[in-house]
Design a protein around this nucleic acid. Structure first.
Lengths: 339, 339
DNA sequence: TTGTAGGCGTTATCAG
DNA sequence: CTGATAACGCCTACAA
């Protein structure tokens, strides 16, 4: 099974490789006759340029790399969706890697992508990531780079984010408006910037409405799972029965909370109100339907790719590119769990 | 930002490119002294071989392509997970494309991957796919190729599947054992082989237990969504109240069914029993917990990649490869919806 | 309008 | 042990 090459076409047609190449690329200086001959033969031989050779010549592969913590995840799979759709529109392919929330893996994968010489890299950091060197490496090598959602603020790259502080503030304010006085926050792990920001938003809302902050009302997820939600809900129900509101880092965990409350016959929203984060599809399917903060995941993917594209184009044109930060808007979705 | 190359190292060290290359690749015939010098310099210059050049020379890119109908899908995202994990273990990267259940897109994407000269291709067909030419193209070009789950039986490639007929038979038999007499099947679209096979399994089970087949009890999904589940459930409840069992093509749709029954206060499993397919995480979270057929998604990914790897290795060694079919086992998971 | 020549960076062969 | 040379397939000044 031999691949057909320019050389073959040139030889069977008795002309030079150059002419064949030009004919195929619609150069003006090829006689219509030879051009047609070339086109026909190329077609019948199913010629496609060898992308390895093209990559080597042009120094680009029209391929980008994407590193995310988890593929099986409502938010991230939607982001992937947005990225590959937008990439395809623009003639780019996407290599996807999963860090499994491990900093070690994330580092290795950055290295992999650098070695692969992808044209650009998009990353959302793992929960473990409290370390920057591998990201600086990307910058040092001059590879176009975009961070989204779980970012390192200190790295001067383009970023696509939401205003986590404000979104969290809104969520907690919503609970307060609904009459909650004693509000628990089930927060994300220690490292991720967005977990920190949502925590800050929670505190700010309390502050604004003169509710004293009480650290015993803060629970910290390690794995951010459904099971953790159940466990924390149980702890809360048994040790802090006076809690009447719950702001949860993400819908998956909030669904775990609701699952426990259902089992324990604790009435939501009558006895306790719950609001999640991210507007997962399932949150409108469970009983009671979960109030949440809508986070535009697909759009984040699209925006991330487009920022990357801009930077890649600048690089090609040797134009300096200024990193940009795009902040997408969020929205409170009120459902049964906070009626 | 210049990339460092063998040439640079050779020049600054005053030796030949060949020697540098050998030193870096641990060839036996390089003096320890020069070797060390090369290694040190390469290290301090952060040398990494230009993969474009390597690809061109070796005619492989250590990259495979994966085409699936949907990324945001519990089953497929788990398969992706399995594939990229196994690929990474073996030094391969994965380009992911999404056909959006469109045959047109699927064809284009196959072409894209062929042009990209990936080392191998893994595909799960879109629901629209009733057409083979693009798959034959892969075979014609001699590109290692594996199909999984939604396959074209006629294409002689390796395949990773479950026994959909048997799995469906088991599910329906389970309903019959639980006392169901009038069993509806909400089936998948017309084209996909696995929708056809599950339908056959349904009929066989009825036959075995002498329940006459009644085509008015078969509903056909177009989009296989939550909403469709709700709609069909409503139709069934209003027009065929004597139905007492429901075998649904996939959990997502089944969850839609349960959502309607919940709203309409129809008691599951007392009035009607429901069994889904694929063992989605959410199926154990909703109320009532959904009985289902467990389909090993991650494992399908792993098996698919491994089959592909075998074929890629055979190709390298110029050994003939015989396409294989791996059939993974399924299992009935009994939960509240069929108690 | 066509062709020659050089190079992208690596690897493999073969001779010194 | 070391290196010259060719080749992978394509692109692009520059000549002819």
């Amino acid at each position: 099974m031999k691949e057909t090459t320019l050389k073959q076409i040139a030889e069977t047609l008795g002309i030079s490789i150059t002419t064949v190449s030009k004919a195929l690329k619609n150069y003006s200086d090829v006689s219509p006759k030879t051009k047609q001959a070339v086109l026909e033969l190329a077609n019948s031989l199913q010629y496609t340029p060898n992308s390895f050779a093209v990559n080597l010549r042009t120094k680009e592969s029209k391929t980008i790399g994407l590193i995310i913590p988890e593929v099986v995840h409502h938010f991230f799979s939607n982001v992937i969706n947005g990225i590959i759709a937008e990439a395809e529109k623009n003639g780019y392919l996407v290599i996807i890697l999963q860090s499994n929330e491990s900093l070690e893996l994330e580092k290795k994968q950055v290295e992999l992508l650098i070695n692969k010489r992808v044209d650009g890299i998009i990353v959302s950091l793992s929960n473990e990531s409290n370390h920057d060197e591998h990201l600086k490496d990307i910058l040092r090598r001059g590879i176009p780079f975009v961070q989204f959602d779980k970012i390192s603020k200190l790295i001067p790259s383009s970023k696509v984010i939401i205003n986590d502080q404000k979104a969290a503030f809104d969520a907690v304010e919503h609970l307060i408006f609904k009459g909650c006085k004693k509000i628990v926050h089930i927060r994300g792990p220690v490292n991720p910037q967005n977990a920190i920001d949502r925590f800050i938003g929670y505190k700010r809302a309390l502050e604004k409405y003169n509710i004293p902050f009480d650290s015993s009302l803060v629970y910290t997820c390690k794995n951010v799972t459904f099971e953790e939600g159940k466990e924390f809900a149980q702890q809360i129900a048994t040790t802090q029965p006076e809690v009447d509101g719950l702001f949860v880092i993400t819908d998956l965990v909030a669904v775990g909370v609701l699952a426990y409350f259902n089992e324990a016959q604790i009435k939501v929203p009558q006895q306790i109100k719950v609001i999640g984060f991210s507007n997962w599809f399932m949150s409108q399917v469970i009983t009671p339907k979960l109030s949440t903060v809508d986070q535009p995941s697909y759009e984040m993917g699209v925006a991330s790719f487009n920022l990357l594209l801009q930077e890649m184009n600048c690089k090609k044109d040797m134009v300096k590119f200024e990193p940009q930060t795009i902040e997408l808007t969020t929205q409170i979705i009120e459902r049964e769990s906070t009626f």
